[in-house]
Design a protein around this nucleic acid. Sequence first.
RNA 1: GGUGCGGUAGCCAAGUGGUAAGGCCGAGCUCUGCAAAAGCUCUAUUCGGCGGUUCGAUUCCGCCCCGCACCUCCA
Length: 457
Amino acid sequence: MALRLHDSLTRRLQDLRRPNPDDAKDVFTFYCCGPTVYAPAHIGNFRTFVVNDVLRRLLELEYGAAKVRHVRNLTDVDDRTIGQAKKEGRPLGDITRHWTKLFHEDCAALNCLVPHAEPTATGYIKEQVNMIEVLLQKGNAYRAADGSVYFKLSTFPEYGGLSRIRERELQVTNTVADADHKDSVSDFALWKAYKPEEDGDVRWPGPDGAAPGRPGWHIECSAMSKALLGDTIDLHSGGVDLLFPHHENEIAQSQCCNGTTFARHWYHSEHLLVDGTTMSKSKGNYYTLRDLLDQGYSAPAVRYALLAGHPRKQLNFTLDSLHAAESAIRTLHAYRATLPTTEDVNDVFRPVQEALHDDLNTPAAFGALFTIINRRETDATRASFDRALFALGLDLDAASPAQTTAPSAVTALAEQRWAAKQAKDFAAADALRKEITAAGWSMLDRKDGYTLEPVKK
RNA sequence: GGUGCGGUAGCCAAGUGGUAAGGCCGAGCUCUGCAAAAGCUCUAUUCGGCGGUUCGAUUCCGCCCCGCACCUCCA
């Protein structure tokens, strides 16, 4: 079954295809909008990246790992990054390096495959400037009085096709008096002229005839995808919030500059909610991966919880859903141990991949997974199970709670209780169990000994 | 106001014009001295409300109620 995915532009399910499957050099090109590195990424951000990671895995299973090229950018210069640098009184690069490192750590913990390239906006200034110059030459952009460059929306009649927002509606809603020098309020910035009071020392030489400054946000993705993947990419994805204006603007810039289709397929994943509303700093209702790990939840459980709802539906995140995820993962872990390591004759877990191939239906995939498990298929092997888990990106071994060692006082109590139990002095054994529990540890009796684990919350 | 999405068991969540996957929680049982783990079994005559189409609708259509998101730099 081909990989079918909802396309945001046509609003239909469409098969994802390599345009030239007979060409050995042809690869499937996949661009996903990445994070802005100025603060910790919250798990809402990671819903997008985890969903896209499943997509990447499916593409690899479908075409072969060598036939997929996945690019995800890092926005390391914009109002927010500059604002954060200014606030902390540190160079912009310090801030963005710091948050990039933490972002990568979280990605690794969530078992996301590393993109083939992770370009940064500051690493592609020249490409962005070049693109702006082409747009100026073609008449799709103009220089403003302050030296900024804007995209002239009226030169691209197809604008709004993705978001279905018409220009006149934009103007109605644009109530903020625009302080800059646009011809039309709908026009968006390609290049922002340097403002000493706001930008500190962040500036580059601008496009021909423009002032020094920095690129606008939207142009970076257009320039980096062009540089790394070519004029037309097979799949472009991101969170729904990017649909307008970011992706709409990317289409306008890229298609006017390159004269060809920008992306063959658009995919947007929905938001993660907390307490029924979207996460945000101002509401104070967001979680970071670190928060959850510190509370004792495992990264695979977080990944599971993020995939527990259909990616194109809003998902309300709760600690209950994390508990459920932890339990489900324990079941998977125990089940895996029962599977033979023999070669598989029937791919009994095939329905899991099929569910994923049907518009990335992750909840249905989990359903299929457990249905098969509950059937106790005699043909099930570890290899077929692991293939299913690979597609979902679940690393079960990483789910085992951190092997914290009990304090010596607790170990001593445990030794005493074990001895008492061997001597069949059950009254003493029970009393010692209580003490151990009171100290925050569970003593789990095994056949030939015992293990100690922190008491579960 | 515009655009889009959704309302399915205690919680989460798939799905279909032909009579409701799955996970969690809970209950019972088995096994263990106890506990835990593991295994087995059970848990929606019903899919926001009211109409319509149909032999038949949770699934299609209309209206209504409720919730959420986006509307210029938020994944």
